[in-house]
Computed example of a mutant assay.
Amino acid sequence: MRIKEVALKYLVDFIMINGLGGDFMKRNWAYVIIAGIIEVMWAMGLKYSNNLITWAGTFFLIYVSFVVLMKATKKLPVATVYAVFTGIGTAGTVLVEMVVFGEPFKKLMLRNALQRN
């Protein structure tokens, strides 16, 4: 196995042991959740990258999130997976902006984020 496959397997196993159960279908949903969390990270990278190393890290996260997402779509419906993936990314990005980076809460911003999905 390649390093990324081993790391992904251990991450999914950790998520499944700590709350999502153990059957095959839940493993694929764990992939979607992981891809969504990675999407939040690369969305932050798009905003805050300012040199070659941070841009390289952002593009690496984009690549990893879509590799994990494609793994999930092999067993789950593509439309459903993509809707959940973008929902996690949109909601997560708004929350991280407010909690971590101090973006002020605005009803308009929340409404616009919800309308994108």
Rank of each mutant, 00 (worst) to 15 (best):
Tyr31His: 14
Val40Asn: 00
Lys26Tyr: 10
Met25Val: 14
Thr90Tyr: 06
Gly89Lys: 02
Lys71Ile: 00
Asn28Gln: 11
Glu39Arg: 11
Ala72Lys: 00
Met98Arg: 02
Ala35Phe: 01
Thr80Gly: 10
Thr80Ile: 15
Trp42Tyr: 12
Gly92Val: 04
Thr90Val: 09
Glu39His: 15
Tyr10Cys: 10
Met16Cys: 12
Phe105Thr: 07
Val64Phe: 09
Val84Gly: 00
Pro104Asn: 09
Ala35Asn: 02
Val40Thr: 09
Leu69Asn: 01
Val32Asn: 04
Thr73Lys: 08
Pro104Val: 07
Val12Met: 14
Val64Asp: 11
Thr86Lys: 05
Val68Pro: 01
Thr73Ser: 08
Leu20Gln: 10
Val12His: 05
Phe24Ile: 11
Ser49Arg: 07
Thr73Trp: 05
Glu103Phe: 14
Tyr48Gly: 14
Tyr63Asp: 15
Leu8Met: 15
Asp13Pro: 12
Ala91Tyr: 06
Glu103Ser: 13
Val96Ser: 02
Ile37Arg: 08
Thr80Ser: 10
Val81Cys: 01
Glu97Phe: 01
Ala72Glu: 01
Ser49Trp: 03
Ile33Glu: 08
Arg27Ile: 02
Arg27Cys: 06
Leu20Val: 07
Ile33Ser: 05
Ile53Ser: 06
Ile88His: 02
Thr90Ser: 10
Ala7His: 11
Trp55Tyr: 12
Leu11Arg: 04
Val67Tyr: 08
Val94Cys: 11
Phe14Leu: 15
Ser65Tyr: 15
Leu95Phe: 14
Ala91Phe: 11
Leu95Pro: 10
Gly89His: 09
Ala35Thr: 01
Leu61Arg: 04
Gly36Ile: 03
Ile38Glu: 00
Phe105Ala: 03
Phe105Cys: 08
Val94Tyr: 11
Met98Thr: 02
Asn28Asp: 06
Ser49Asp: 10
Tyr31Val: 09
Val64Cys: 12
Phe66Ser: 08
Phe14Cys: 13
Gly87Val: 06
Gly92Pro: 03
Leu108Pro: 01
Val32Cys: 08
Asp23Arg: 06
Met25Trp: 14
Ala79Glu: 15
Lys26Gly: 05
Glu97Cys: 07
Ala91Leu: 12
Arg27Phe: 03
Phe85Arg: 02
Tyr63Gly: 15
Leu108Ile: 09
Gly87Asn: 14
Val78Ser: 08
Met70Glu: 07
Ala7Thr: 12
Glu97Gln: 09
Lys26Pro: 05
Ala43Arg: 00
Ala43Asp: 02
Val94Ile: 13
Val84Asp: 00
Phe105Pro: 02
Phe60Ile: 05
Leu20Thr: 12
Gly22Leu: 05
Tyr63Pro: 06
Leu110Ser: 12
Ile17Pro: 08
Glu103Pro: 05
Met70Asp: 14
Thr54Ala: 12
Ser49Gln: 13
Gly57Ala: 06
Leu76Gly: 02
Phe66Ile: 06
